[in-house]
Design a protein around this nucleic acid. Structure first.
Lengths: 142, 142
DNA sequence: CAAAAAGGTTGACTTTGTCAACTAAATATT
DNA sequence: AATATTTAGTTGACAAAGTCAACCTTTTTG
């Protein structure tokens, strides 16, 4: 059993950061996609050729939800699908050009927002923040 | 304009932690409340006597959504409301005993989950994680 | 080959969240 | 003091987000 103040600190941060991300995330408004959709597009940007299965595994989304989402993205021309050579059941998904453009816009908006958040900090604090983020990720990604 | 790799690092962490919280948050399943509801109850636990207005300000929720949520909580006996002495429009909200019990259960479940996450780490890593969390919170809460 | 498992689709549905119009109380304006 | 404006909360109607289970097809396993 972990020390209970450690548990409290851990939980406190998670609440804090849930709130913080909620504030940030609201700026995703005025975009044509919601958070889950943005995550899917982002994943396809990062991993062209991923399958719906990959997406739902990596992002923890529902089967039917992803299926419909992808279908809509294809209809909108953002994503294209092509049958996998190895497995006749799966479709490889990748961003089509309009999807790239959309992602570029999302990236730009997100970068501007990140910039605003970081620019408010003194250089030393910014370093402290980014080092701490790297530390967390390094500890938790195992 | 912030250094672009700083922006990338910041955004990278936010994506990473969104995923991480998503994984954690799914354990809130098998609970009778969803994330927003849990946040509201948590806030009432922390700040007895808060108004619906306080809740929607602090948590960024919709007026009508909060109103209905509170109404349901009252019906379920989790929350009690009493008219404010100073302002006839507002109702002071606080957890009733069954709400306290519910919160205790949520706290216990969340603590167990946190414990599982932390117990998987070596003491040195755990310290590194918690220090990093404290650093982030201290930098960002200004 | 037959049976079981896995990827994906679809219809029906629930949950979650939003919007705008409204009531009543408080505050500001003349 | 009377009127206008603003604010807390409520409500109906609705939209968005997400879930569930049945189903078809292809692949894998026994």
């Amino acid at each position: 059993m972990t020390n209970s103040t450690e548990i409290d600190r851990f939980r406190h941060f998670n609440r804090f950061y849930t709130n913080y991300l909620g504030l940030l995330g609201n700026h995703l408004y005025e975009s044509p996609v919601n958070l889950s959709e943005a995550r899917v597009l982002f994943e396809l940007d990062r991993c062209p050729g991923a399958s719906a299965r990959d997406l739902r595994d990596r992002l923890g989304l529902d089967k039917g939800y992803v299926s419909r989402m992808v279908k809509r993205f294809v209809r909108q021309g953002w994503v294209e699908e092509r049958a996998s050579a190895e497995d006749g059941r799966v479709k490889e998904l990748r961003l089509a050009q309009p999807g790239d453009a959309l992602m570029a816009g999302l990236h730009r908006a997100a970068a501007e927002q990140a910039d605003r958040a970081l620019a408010a900090l003194a250089p030393a604090e910014r370093k402290r923040l980014l080092d701490a983020m790297a530390a967390i990720e390094s500890v938790l990604s195992r």
